[in-house]
Design a binder for these strands. Structure first.
Lengths: 109, 109
DNA sequence: AAATTAGATCAACAGGAGTTGATGTATCAA
DNA sequence: TTGATACATCAACTCCTGTTGATCTAATTT
């Protein structure tokens, strides 16, 4: 279990956006939730989620390129897992956002 | 300042997805970051971000419907602010995701 | 070496999300 | 009451993102 998260470098707006965009798809979110349980082989994911192979592969690529998941090849299988650093970084970015948003507006115009 | 977040009800996958989708747009993220500084009037946002009025209005609507921001009308001006509950809920959802993802896969197939 | 299997990649297509300019509505000023 | 201002909404268009089925590559088995 991860008790304390690694210091998670502060995220630039662009980086946060890339992560959010990769997460903001129903199918990719299913994949992410499945990987939230632990590492999975592609063939397991295909079965669990009932997806066409090329479809899953497409979304795994998006997640990989966003840095949300990592893959390791073993023989002819491919295992993917979440990258908790990415999740933690996004989490932290959200936290900063929420911390200072209560300032009332000065009357404008 | 918000020291402890309100208990933030656990988020269903669908709800998390809606929040993520609303956040995953470059323009909306700019709006969100501006509102991260505190409440803003629409005319201020238009100026700060250099946006066409109808464009901004469109994105504010998306954010409002996702529950990420709240608006209050004052005279003929509209003030928007972030809803920290929404941010916190998403933050928590991400945390749960990251906490159990290190389980190695049992060899599959 | 030939056949099989896992997964990645590609091209063509389809649908949805964002943009733009115009119009609508409510509030305030003159 | 008339005009101006702030913002929302709408219709038409554009473009990007995801889907589908086929093909490609690499590892494995026989």
């Amino acid at each position: 279990m991860v008790l304390s998260s690694p210091p998670a470098a502060a995220l630039a707006g662009d980086e946060a956006r890339a992560l959010l965009k990769a997460l903001a798809d129903p199918l990719r979110l299913q994949v992410i939730e499945a990987l939230g349980q632990g590492e999975r082989c592609v063939c397991e994911l295909t079965g669990e989620l009932g997806l066409a192979q090329s479809k899953l592969s497409f979304h795994l690529k998006v997640l990989r390129e966003a840095g949300l998941i990592d893959g390791r090849q073993q023989g002819r299988w491919m295992y993917y897992q979440l990258r908790p650093e990415a999740i933690r970084a996004l989490q932290q970015w959200l936290g900063e956002l929420a911390s200072s948003c209560q300032t009332p507006a000065q009357p404008c115009c």
